[in-house]
Design a protein around this nucleic acid. Structure first.
Lengths: 345, 345
DNA sequence: CTGAAAGCGCTTACAG
DNA sequence: CTGAAAGCGCTTACAG
């Protein structure tokens, strides 16, 4: 099939291509009757604007970019990203924006992709995930002047807009819940330690444990994988001061931890309580079902996408703070046994 | 920052923009020394080709599209798609191709997106997933002449190229394994029944059960969700002719089935054996770990992407048949108890 | 080997 | 309200 152009429409309608352009774009400069005629013809011959031609005349490309830098096997198993993408998509498709996705290996390639996209005029803006401490992407994006929204806490986002929730408040909720159940020794299996939001959670965890007078707040850093979670759980369970409750930074690790507890002869929650972060259906599929910090990830994605579209439209930059994750109690948490914890025996 | 153009390079090098273009694209028409000078300047000023301008001159857009039509919550929890995307990406980024992703609700929108992409010249080709019986997308794509590769069995793919594995062979392997363990009554919890690959599996399942003289091969169709899998499992376990083994069409449903079996007082694998399809890490995180049909999904994605690039390049259309999934035995399968199965009691 | 020019399909001041 | 024309940044025959 040959792609119809505005020249075809102009010929049929007996007007200039300029008039057709005005009519199609709802600009003043054509009579109502001409506009209607043009619109009808465009519809009839199945015309679609050639993006390249529009972009060459300075129009936005109507697409945004997302670069992910987690290993493929983590991406596959982490429901987080796909849920985020679903939410982003819901917002974009309503406005006929496209999402361009790229998976890279290292931070340098990530910046190189931004530069290339900017140079190629391939995207109007980007969503930035997994912000790190002193992330070099922030100044790079600021230099380029590429519209960008950080999906994460605004700490370290520089002049870029950001959309996230208060992870610190969520950590506090989880710890206070466990403390109320009677736990005095709570450990945490954390995500990648150089991520900004991991830092936020770790700081909040340390603070609230101190404030509540709990045992030394231990956080074991991991890479978010099931193996990482299993390994950390093994270490915690076999440590001299075994905690009575563990808070995990995602749900894959929590479920791995549940299996490890079973292997090591501990009953959940009688001997140890486990709390997952992120509440994908997995948490309800295991036995006992996992108590989890639940949040609407696809809503985050939608919110971030909307913010990015605002930034692209030139609206003033504001950062959005979404609702924090909230605790859904299920079977994996309960009061500690009076004699539980190797530190007390 | 202002984007540098070939005019900038031409001015610096003291040649015409045409010469710059030839030099940059490795075309004949410029001397070696000029080429080197041009390349050096382009590198120095950080030039990137403006995609829009190139596309307007008929160049490919160097991007491919993928439209997904599963509900957002399924996408999030199904490791399949993200793994597929990882594999596609691995192949694309090596050649500087971009992936444009779109999530839609119904088949009509899916075709509308193809039409729009084609009209806009937004992508050079598309990857088509979840092919259905008499899928209207196939003739639509054939009409448009948009390069396309079906990720799935070639049944129903028409003149489009396809890349998939022999799901039938895999089903046979699973059933023969269970039969060898002594199972005579095997049921299946299938995926969406109107998907082509579900049909292939169902046909193979029916055939092999008949060939081995097993009990009536029952397949319960589902929507691939954990709830769907749980519901189907409940039905099978409480049916008068309770099977001694169940084969699931994905791993989420298998894990849901494992939980249901436990709730209903059945021990796995003593009372019932369960086999998952797709072997994400989830299968190893539950207890007992799940026997699963394992396949390298990201390799499928890479293979399909490579094939699509071939099609875009105008190479002859060939369909690829990858290695079938193969069985990884774990703790969720074993011999049936002599008295197991309500049909025998 | 090189330059000048047309053209891709749009948008948008600029004249009428 | 409308038309003729320039321009976006490339590519590519066409002359020299």
């Amino acid at each position: 099939m040959k792609r119809p152009t505005i020249a075809d429409i102009a010929a049929r309608a007996g007007v200039s291509t300029g008039a057709v352009s005005y009519a199609l774009n709802g600009q003043p400069g054509v009579s109502e009757s001409t506009r209607r005629r043009v619109l009808a013809i465009a519809e009839e011959i199945g015309w679609n604007p050639n993006r390249a031609a529009r972009a060459l005349s300075g129009a936005p490309t109507n697409s945004i970019g997302l670069v992910l830098r987690r290993p493929a096997r983590v991406l596959g198993v982490e429901p987080f990203f796909m849920e985020l993408i679903s939410g982003v998509e819901a917002e974009l498709s309503a406005r006929s924006f496209a999402l361009t996705l790229h998976v890279v290996r290292d931070p340098e390639s990530e910046i190189a992709v931004y530069r290339r996209w900017w140079g190629e005029r391939r995207v109007d803006g980007v969503l930035v995930c997994d912000l790190r401490i002193d992330d070099p992407r922030v100044p790079a994006l600021e230099d380029l002047g590429l519209a960008a929204v950080v999906v994460g806490p605004d700490e370290g986002a520089g002049t870029l807009a950001s959309a996230w929730s208060d992870d610190g408040a969520a950590v506090v909720e989880a710890v206070e819940y466990l403390a109320t159940l009677g736990h005095r020794s709570i450990a945490r299996v954390g995500g990648l330690p150089d991520l900004q939001h991991t830092g936020v959670r770790t700081a909040a965890f340390t603070d609230v444990c101190r404030r509540l007078g709990l045992a030394d707040p231990v956080t074991i850093p991991t890479d978010y994988t099931g193996e990482g979670g299993a390994h950390a759980t093994r270490r915690l369970i076999s440590s001299r001061k075994r905690p009575t409750a563990i808070l995990y930074d995602n749900d894959i690790m929590a479920i791995a931890g549940l299996a490890v507890a079973g292997e090591m002869g501990l009953a959940v929650p009688r001997d140890i309580s486990l709390v997952a972060w992120d509440d994908s259906v997995l948490c309800q599929l295991v036995r006992p079902p996992m108590t989890a910090m639940s949040r609407d990830i696809s809503a985050y994605g939608a919110r971030a996408a909307r913010l990015l579209l605002d930034v692209i439209a030139g609206n003033p930059v504001v950062s959005i703070r979404d609702e924090p994750a909230h605790l859904i109690p299920r079977g994996s948490t309960g009061p500690p046994r009076p004699d539980a914890g190797a530190g007390r025996g």
